[in-house]
Nucleic acid binder design. Sequence first.
DNA 1: CTGTTAGCGCATTCAC
DNA 2: GTGAATGCGCTAACAG
Lengths: 330, 330
Amino acid sequence: MATIKDVSSESGFSIATVSRVVNNPDLVARSTRERVQRAISNLGYVPNSAARMLHKQTASYGGLVSSSFGTEYHSTIAEGVEVAFQETRLLCINVGSNMTAEGELEAYRLLTNFQCKAIVLHSDRLELEILKRLMHENPSLAVVGRCVDGFEKRCAYVDNFEVGRGAARHLLACGHRYVGQVLGHEEYSVTRVRSQGFTQVIEDAGFGTDPLPQFSANFSQVTAAERVESFLVAQPNVTALFCHNDQMAWGVMDYCKRAGVRIPQDLAIIAVDDLKLSQFMKPRLSTIALPLNQIGYTAGRLALAGALDNVKISGLQNLIGHKLIVRDTT
Amino acid sequence: MATIKDVSSESGFSIATVSRVVNNPDLVARSTRERVQRAISNLGYVPNSAARMLHKQTASYGGLVSSSFGTEYHSTIAEGVEVAFQETRLLCINVGSNMTAEGELEAYRLLTNFQCKAIVLHSDRLELEILKRLMHENPSLAVVGRCVDGFEKRCAYVDNFEVGRGAARHLLACGHRYVGQVLGHEEYSVTRVRSQGFTQVIEDAGFGTDPLPQFSANFSQVTAAERVESFLVAQPNVTALFCHNDQMAWGVMDYCKRAGVRIPQDLAIIAVDDLKLSQFMKPRLSTIALPLNQIGYTAGRLALAGALDNVKISGLQNLIGHKLIVRDTT
DNA sequence: CTGTTAGCGCATTCAC
DNA sequence: GTGAATGCGCTAACAG
């Protein structure tokens, strides 16, 4: 890798001059500029971003930490963030967190050290106290996926308690009395909150048990398909299931198809997300739709607003609405 | 942001000692270490990655440059890359290229400056000569999505010429004689190569026109839905369409549903990718399946192999197979 | 218009 | 065991 020094000796000018032709070409004489530029392309010189960032207080990057790249859920949110950053001409850097709290933190640190102008942290596992500290330190940090109290204005989130309540009300309205849940990762805050909302409504209606019939499938289709059979055997009275995301619902439906369990007659299903596939499968999945792309975009704008003065967020709702979509599975 | 200097003065020890407790705790006396560590946590000190990278010749990151985060196509490949990196305990940094050649290059440079151990470049637009130069310079760079001659062994790619030929043969076998194409971005190499393969077979069969009826829709569902009507009006004899990806096929099908065009009776469709949705829609989409996740994983391994000695790639196929899946649209 | 110099934060010799 | 000094590559004063 050629450095600025190499260009300097190759062209015969000082490194300062080389730096100028790269950053402020107008400040340098035409003939000099041309000779330096020739040296630059001869050597294939490209400025080292690390050194640049070390020196300057800013860079043209926006950062996103996300636990995974592959799922539609994560990638749709990521796309929204990316669009927001692009509007401000920031290159978007997306760092995976390997689904651990340490990974989330490491990814975040990396991004701050890279001098990202704005950072969106899609945090599932980090402790609330740490999150608060980070948001306190860094005004251009926005959080997606959960609400950090005291910093609500910089979180793009869904009222997951209300999502859980909505699912329960719908199942009750359909006449179900003995209902269960398929949970995502139990350590994730979203899982706890949705479960609390769901449980509250069921209990208030007088149909609660402690605990409610439930099992965890880590938000994964395959895992849900594997675990649902033994659950159903142990809980033969359950007539409806609240799946904490669409993918786990798909897994349950995979099993039901194989096992001859009829949906919704034998088992009703309500889920959360409304991924693309859910309206096309048979039967079509009833679900609580989340505007994922908008969530990401909002978070991106929020982060940007903390960094740049000219970014307006008036009229931007950071508490994102959700919507029950009743289809064939309930 | 606290720096190593702050920790130094807070603890009363030199910055060298602080550096040691961070990187080589064993080299420092227990009591000193403890006092320094206390200072570190008081100040919330975290080493600056940029400075670190500037000094060291290596870091624990793997990099990916990808033109977009949101599509299933890109995110599935990205997931494969991420998994490969994770196996070697590298955090994966994914930088968007904003779909421009300059963006691809800038993203790549960023990643090298960050001292990424291995880099996967999902390049659609960069000129071949530049690509060759980069691969020559950097042995731990792998390319995904196309084949760079002279560096085949470090490319994870599909034989797109053969993909185009396969699509044409299938359409011919179905009895179609007057066929057209829906192209992706015309600047992308993948578009050119698939088109050449397709055209060759059609011409060899004696049904070629110059050019073939075709239009571009930038790999986008919405764009395809918008543009297909005027195309069909101008080309009323076309009975079958080769869409260069599933998403554009979906767009065409959206239009056909609205316009009352029957598939496959009035218009047959063959596409490429086999995204999740394609087997569930009605009618189910005939398509040439690409193992996207495997492509990404392979590219990740290839890049790693160029960087680390202990990464084995024996038995790893870098020319990835594709497979025609005939469903309802042909 | 161009060159010299200091310093960004850190890891690493080399002395002590 | 610990500290002082050097340099990674670059930009931004400050001189000339």
